[in-house]
């Protein structure tokens, strides 16, 4: 099992660094001959993806009159930002802040405690650690959404119902198994000699963890942080069940209630869709490679 995990890690690492460029080129020229049907299919799929995106963006720039009067796929004759203005007036800045708080408040602790646990699982030994590792692996196979009812009960009993903390705690717990798995794969890849030399220099395991393992696993940490971050950012069930105050809505929940209230004003609803996606779109533009690597979290082997 450990050899398999190791090879996975290597692949995940090259993936996240975008290294296999040369292999890609050689392979590409070969695959290039599938061109005609492949190319056609590629363009058709592009249309399927782009049409909805295009529709959402242009409609969000239309006036109500433009929406009812123009061809739905025509560019707006008098583009307007008033929809965006009304979305921002509907507290979207607040929803954005809530989403940011919940995402950071979940991802940072998740990565930190998962990293510590992974280090112990890889570097330590003993029955206890084996048991812990086995439990996290089991956690991967369980659809944790199915535990929403007891979580709701616990959050009420802890007096945390309708708070942002209520969203963070289960998000952290749900994210731990996969995060530990990926991070321990990476730590396992660090050559043993490096650990030995740290030890000979008189460093404690605690120091070794922060000074050696942490810097060396940085790519994996970025990867899992992005993966978990997107899941929390886009999460819907936890906020739906565990909060109720309008001031505590996160973006997906805000979107949903907004479309309920503004169902007559489709351009404004679609402006809210665009606005809620904008932060991630910016990330996509800045660090596409890293974001995509983070999205698959090393699944692409």
């Amino acid at each position: 099992m450990s050899t398999v995990l190791k090879s996975n890690t290597q692949e995940a690492r090259t993936g996240s660094l975008g290294r296999p460029a040369s292999a890609k080129r050689g392979l590409g020229s070969r695959l290039g001959r599938l061109n005609i049907p492949g190319g056609l299919g590629g363009w058709i799929w592009l249309a399927i993806i782009i049409l909805p995106v295009y529709y959402v963006v242009i409609t969000s720039l239309k006036t109500q009159a433009g929406y009812f009067g123009q061809n739905p796929l025509a560019l707006p004759t008098e583009p307007t930002l008033e929809n965006y203005q009304s979305v921002l007036e509907a507290d979207f800045a607040q929803y954005f802040m809530n989403s940011a708080i919940v995402t950071l408040g979940s991802v940072i602790p998740t990565v930190l405690i998962s990293f510590m646990a992974s280090f112990a699982i890889v570097r330590g030994s003993g029955r206890f650690l084996k048991l812990v590792n086995g439990m996290f692996l089991m956690g991967l196979a369980i659809p944790l959404q199915a535990t929403i009812i007891p979580i709701y009960l616990m959050i009420i009993r802890l007096n945390l119902y309708d708070s942002l903390l209520a969203l963070m705690l289960p998000s952290i717990a749900f994210a731990i198994p996969l995060t530990v798995l990926i991070l321990s794969n990476f730590i396992r890849d660090v050559p043993n000699e490096l650990f030995e030399s740290m030890r000979l220099d008189g460093c404690s395991e605690w120091q070794t963890m922060w000074r050696l393992a942490l810097p060396l696993t940085r790519p994996a940490i970025v990867t899992v942080a992005i993966y978990n971050g997107l899941h929390v950012w886009n999460g819907f069930l936890l906020p739906l069940v565990l909060t109720q105050s309008p001031s505590l809505r996160v973006l997906p929940l805000g979107l949903w209630t907004f479309q309920g209230e503004f169902s007559v004003n489709i351009p404004a609803v679609l402006a809210s869709v665009v606005l809620s996606t904008l932060p991630i779109l910016v990330l996509y533009v800045i660090g596409r490679r890293q974001l995509l690597a983070g999205l698959t979290a090393g699944f692409s082997k």
Partner: peptide, 14 residues
């Protein structure tokens, strides 16, 4: 074996 305590926070949440 002493490293085991490093798993406590993650274990607690989980």
């Amino acid at each position: 074996a002493a490293l085991a305590w490093l798993t406590i926070p993650a274990l607690f949440f989980f």
